[in-house]
Design a protein around this nucleic acid. Structure first.
Ligand code: ZN
Ligand code: ZN
Ligand code: ZN
Ligand code: ZN
Lengths: 143, 143
DNA sequence: ATGTCAAATGGAAATGATTTTCAATAACGA
DNA sequence: TCGTTATTGAAAATCATTTCCATTTGACAT
């Protein structure tokens, strides 16, 4: 039974990070894990099945998850925070389709070279970066 | 008289873009052009010499300037909009020092290769990206 | 210079996402 | 089961940004 196993893994991860396992946390994670796009707090709550968390609870948990590298917080030009689940806490980036909104992780980071070039140009030592990619997903580009 | 010339150039640019030349606009631009770092609206207003704009005026103008590629709008984890003046409206990025806050433009974009690699990995056609760089400026890295 | 008028300004009020407060609840180890 | 302590959530607070709208002003024609 795959589902049960997934839940067990998730709960273990929560406990391992010092969290108590609450239905709210489980619901938040479940929604994010099964979403194909970044979600706002409002969207996360409205997508919960069987359990409805309060707004502050969702914000608090998302912030904690972000500190653990489990979610990435994106804030676009509309000033609204949106959250994506990260399958790995290794450095990576996300591409989002400008047509349908779908977002996927791009494993790894191909910026090493480019960053070296920019270090040379600027004289800065670059220690951290944040890259947001936008474009057309396979489905939308074949149209 | 260099100063006067700079002003003339700025005013011409404003008129060329269909703007009226108002002291508020001039003041906003003057502050941003001479800042070594991104500024919030509050900061912009407090740095004005000789003329104090109202808050809505500053927001409105910054938005318009952004549409013309004259400023870039950055919104960090503190959810506050900050604005940088761009010396060119060609595509480029900014590096900011995590120690002292200073920011500089990095001319051009060295991401072509990296983007191709990420297109291959993701299957998306990448049409747009936004890169924020952080690190240590020449002064701070020599500690 | 003066008149005309749409663009621009700014004080005040509204908006609305996010955060804080705090009393009630629930997870979990003993 | 019990006690401790983290977690929750309704309500209120916060506060950056936006909207309203009456007043001012820049640009251009006369
Ligand atoms: Zn798509
Ligand atoms: Zn990267
Ligand atoms: Zn520095
Ligand atoms: Zn670029």
């Amino acid at each position: 039974m795959v589902h049960r196993n997934t839940n067990a893994v998730r709960d273990a991860a929560l406990r391992g990070a010092g969290f108590r396992v609450t239905p709210q946390r489980q619901a938040i994670i479940r929604v994010l894990e099964t979403s194909d796009r970044p979600l706002s707090v409002e969207e996360i709550i409205s997508r919960m099945k069987g359990y409805r968390s309060g707004v502050p609870t969702v914000y608090r948990n998302l912030q904690q998850f972000a500190e653990h590298g489990w979610v990435e917080t994106l804030v676009g030009p509309d000033q609204i925070m949106r959250f994506v689940w990260c399958s790995t806490s290794k450095h990576h980036h996300h591409v989002q389709c400008e047509q349908c909104g779908r977002a996927v992780e791009v494993e790894g980071c191909a910026l090493k070279r480019a960053l070296e070039a920019m270090e040379a140009k600027s004289g800065f030592r670059i220690t951290r970066h944040q890259l947001q990619l936008f474009g057309l997903c396979p489905e939308c580009k074949g149209e």
